[in-house]
């Protein structure tokens, strides 16, 4: 376990450094430079030069890189170009919102997908294909619906037609009920895809476990099929499910950008779209780095959880 953890931590550090460096140098590849791309045709030569200095672009590349690293480490991320707000404080208010949506989605998705997938697998194993085909088909459909489209359809249905959830409004923790109602729709939209992916994995994993030799052993000792399912199958199937939670966190983050944009929720996704539209490269760069860091960290954690669940790893 020690060797494994060390290896994994080393990998985490290398990847993080790679991510940070890649983003930094990619931004330096912009034709002209970031400042002129930002300014477009609006600024005169002198004003452009001032912008460059403000962004630190006139310094040597190495110096820029290290001051950027220092900034990341000390969480001093500079200001937005157009409004002059501190990026750090923007992030501090946006990250909790995005993470709330993400975690709520995972919780909801797991609590629906695992029973659904297990049921499908159990039915398939016993040869009742109708229910299995129904669940598998629905999962495939849900998996392939573009989330922005699902969002619009849900908006049309639940807000505009039925009026259950609000489509817009302020978001603050002062009013928990309003907060929940406001986030409910985005979470629902994102859950659709997540449920589909997780139900599929659960079905495959449980189905595979059910045909393992040790399940037959347990049955030969007199356990019923349902007892075997709960005593053995789910425990073994938990391993691939944990992995998929980590991996599908990426598509979940993709989804948050879109639902935040549609439902005008002030998370990092909205901030990102704002940054791109206002050509604030520094903001965009920081946000992308943070997305990657969140994703990498989540995968690191699920990896450790996996190893914890699997006794075959020596401690």
């Amino acid at each position: 376990m020690l060797a494994y953890s060390l290896k994994r931590i080393l990998q985490l550090i290398v990847t993080t450094l790679g991510v940070v460096t890649l983003v930094f140098f990619t931004l330096r590849l912009i034709p002209g430079d970031a400042a002129s791309a930002m300014a477009g045709d609006t600024l005169s030569g002198e004003a452009l030069q001032r912008l460059r200095e403000q962004m630190g672009l006139s310094r040597p590349l190495g110096e820029q890189y290290f001051s950027y690293l220092r900034g990341l480490l000390s969480f001093k991320l500079g200001e937005t170009i157009t409004t002059g707000l501190s990026i750090s404080s923007l992030l501090l208010s946006a990250i909790p919102i995005t993470l709330t949506i993400a975690l709520a989605t995972i919780t909801l998705a797991l609590s629906i997908a695992v029973p659904l997938g297990t049921m499908a697998a159990f039915m398939a194993h016993k040869g009742y294909r109708t229910l299995d085909n129904l669940i598998t088909g629905a999962a495939m459909l849900a998996d392939l619906m573009p989330s922005f489209w699902t969002a619009l359809v849900f908006l049309l249905l639940f807000s505009l037609t039925l009026g259950i959830f609000p489509a817009s409004g302020t978001i603050s923790l002062e009013d928990p009920r309003a907060f929940l109602m406001r986030l409910a729709l985005p979470v629902l939209v994102l859950s659709v895809t997540q449920i589909a992916a997780m139900a599929r994995i659960t079905r495959t994993a449980v189905l595979e476990v059910l045909s393992e030799d040790y399940i037959r052993t347990a049955r030969s000792m007199g356990w019923s099929e349902l007892q075997v399912l709960f005593r053995h199958a789910l425990k073994n199937a938990a391993l691939p499910i944990v992995t998929i939670v980590g991996l599908s966190f990426g598509s979940l983050l993709n989804g948050t950008v879109i639902v935040e944009f549609i439902f005008t929720i002030p998370g990092i996704g909205s901030l990102l779209v704002y940054g791109i539209n206002s050509r604030d490269y520094q903001l965009v760069q920081t946000l992308i780095v943070f997305y990657a860091l969140i994703f990498v960290t989540v995968n690191f954690v699920t990896d450790l959880v996996y190893k914890k669940l699997d006794p075959r790893v020596q401690f």
Binding site: D213, Y214, R216, T217, K235, P311, R312
Partner: peptide
């Protein structure tokens, strides 16, 4: 090798 539950 496969007839006993590996996680139990």
């Amino acid at each position: 090798m496969s007839s006993l539950d590996p996680v139990m």
